[in-house]
Design a protein around this nucleic acid. Structure first.
Lengths: 212, 212, 212, 212
DNA sequence: CATGAATGAGCCTTCATTCAT
DNA sequence: TATGAATGAAGGCTCATTCAT
């Protein structure tokens, strides 16, 4: 309330980000179609008309929300791609713990839910999300596992499937949080899940010679 | 106007089921809000008004769609709950292969997507889905794993997390199919994934004495 | 109020025409942009939504209104084109009196105003109006005058300009009626204007030998 | 940010006129309702807010545009009113050629179109235009023709209709230019039209004794 | 039972107008 | 003065729902 909230705030530079953040919240809560621009505007502390100073359409806002969620994670993917050549176990442990941290501290979960839910209505969004994030991450892990197999560290098996096995519990735990925790279901501790998962899975993946 | 005798006259008793099936298809494709009653009516080969002879509202249809997808799977869950007391490995292998079959041959994937996407807008649906299906299945698996631990078959570790680890790749593979395959991403072979996954995971879960 | 006006009327076949007629009135009064769909709906005795059962957009309605005003007059143009070969004076007298009748008994004046006012915003409409009506009519008259010149009936001079001279007072009188009569200006008697005009103009157009 | 010194700084005194001129262009192109203040502002090289330093509302600008188009032509009308007492033929020839010049060199045509199109929405504008310009001009011509009739120069007939006959082709030619020339129709040469028209019409108007 | 024309509330989007700077 | 970001009321359009047939 300050000292009589000023009607006009004039901070053009910040507005788009504020709107995107507000939109993220509303979209994640209601989904694209059920989200009303009034909600987004109210959440952003802005008039409905002001949104249209920065975005062409509601779809545009949605695209911006999803697009923005990709950017900060591309670095993560890059790091994984440039994986250090040490033992696979170390790599997986560090990567999964890092990713678990990111996922639990950013709204990535809500965005993931949106992407899954609206993929058919916004194929370009599914494509961008896949090409720039999912496919890259999966590819990097697949490559690392493949290399480890070549070194005799990992048992035979489809490396892409190994990668899928590795990250799946994290994704499911995130969706669980978005879907069932709000209705009272018991949550999963993401970090704990991943710790136990990597331990278990590595035990089955690694060759005897590679076990610590 | 009966000069052209209608070749097939539908029995009224089938109508609700036909509508639900049509609605499932449309909801799975577009999501709840973007699905239009016109689409559902057309898909069901029925007039828009006729739908209201069997359902009160659009939400009602949605509830019916999700509810109907639960019913036939409850048996599956029951079977798991009454699990035979043999070695865990056998149980998991049979259960996962069975579930993989069901998941790839029924529209369960689409329904899952809908539940995740609309959980916030339809908490009762999320609750039903959780209470009658997810929680039961997870509970049954958790119990089985817990029992196996008690028998010394399975290493220490949170049995609920073990259960999550086990089913996650299947769920992710299904969502992958719904989300990224339509835009050209390479699909996963659900059965193959689960075969490799169970093998790998069991190797890490089982105590040395329990290994075949 | 009749005996409790029925909420639903169910006369699909008539609706488009009713709507077009209502739209003509509103568009002619307010112009395209200032006309509100609510006005048209009210005028047509229909809900706003019903309009969209028959027309895609507001522009569509506008196009239909203008298009519909063209159709019944094409016959008039055709008749002029197939002009009898008698003396030009007779032709012009009959044509102008006929046209004057049509113009004063149909909403052609309002449509003309709309076409002029919205030509820049709806070039296709201006084009249709020109190609199918104006250009044809002007061409037919030009041809008739040209033929009369060849027969020695009409003095030298641009026949297309002669045609313009002939019809102009009628058009201006119509626009006068639409523009200035509503604010209290003295109207022109269209028939009287054309009678005096044809008499005067013919006197100047015809060669001495052709005068009656 | 004055490092790049503005080359031209407008004098504030010119602003209103500049805005009106810009508005004339935009209004003539789009019509009143479809004209956006953004367009006018851009055309005037001014910010949208600045317009409101000189005009209360959009309607105000419109009134100014039409009003301004009237002013310079009032002189013309006055001259006609104070018509020299020579032969009518000379008067008409000089007046029409003068008017044709004005009409083809000023945006009067566009304004005429606007007045016709918006007369119903802005009756005061139609009234001003009528009272100060149209009615005066028509009255002056009517009076001159009437006087000529009294002198035996002109045949019997409604002098006001004679006046209408005289100016109509010019008006129609102007509207033709505004309406159909932009879509590719063949234009009329205003001066040529009026030359032929006056010649033809006078021939029919004048008594035998008055012909040169 | 079934139809589909009709309804009307609701939402996205536009744009004249305002006001802090 | 001048700017242009911000406002908010209004209007085009959609679609779940109703009801005369």
């Amino acid at each position: 309330m300050d000292t009589g909230a000023p009607k006009f705030r004039r901070r053009k530079a910040d507005r788009p980000a504020e709107i995107v953040q507000a939109a993220l919240k509303v979209f994640a809560e209601k989904g694209f179609a059920a989200a009303k621009l009034d909600d987004i505007a109210r959440e952003a502390g802005v008039s409905k008309g002001a949104i249209y100073l920065y975005f062409e359409t509601k779809e545009d806002i949605f695209r911006a929300v999803v697009g923005q969620a990709i950017a900060p994670n591309i670095g993560m993917v890059k790091a994984m791609a440039a994986a250090h050549p040490g033992p696979l176990a170390d790599l997986l442990r560090s990567v999964t713990s890092h990713v678990a941290g990111v996922v639990s501290q950013t709204p990535l979960g809500g965005v993931l839910k949106m992407v899954v839910g609206e993929a058919r209505n916004f194929p370009e969004i599914a494509r961008v999300w896949h090409d720039e994030l999912v496919s890259q991450a999966l590819g990097a892990m697949t490559a690392a596992i493949s290399a480890a197999q070549a070194r005799g560290e990992v048992k035979p098996g489809d490396p892409r499937v190994y990668a899928l096995q590795l990250i799946s519990p994290m994704l499911v735990a995130v969706l669980w949080k978005e879907t069932f925790v709000p209705i009272g279901a018991e949550p999963f501790d993401l970090a704990a899940v991943m710790r136990q998962h990597v331990d278990t899975l590595l035990c089955g993946m690694l060759t005897e010679g590679a076990r610590t």
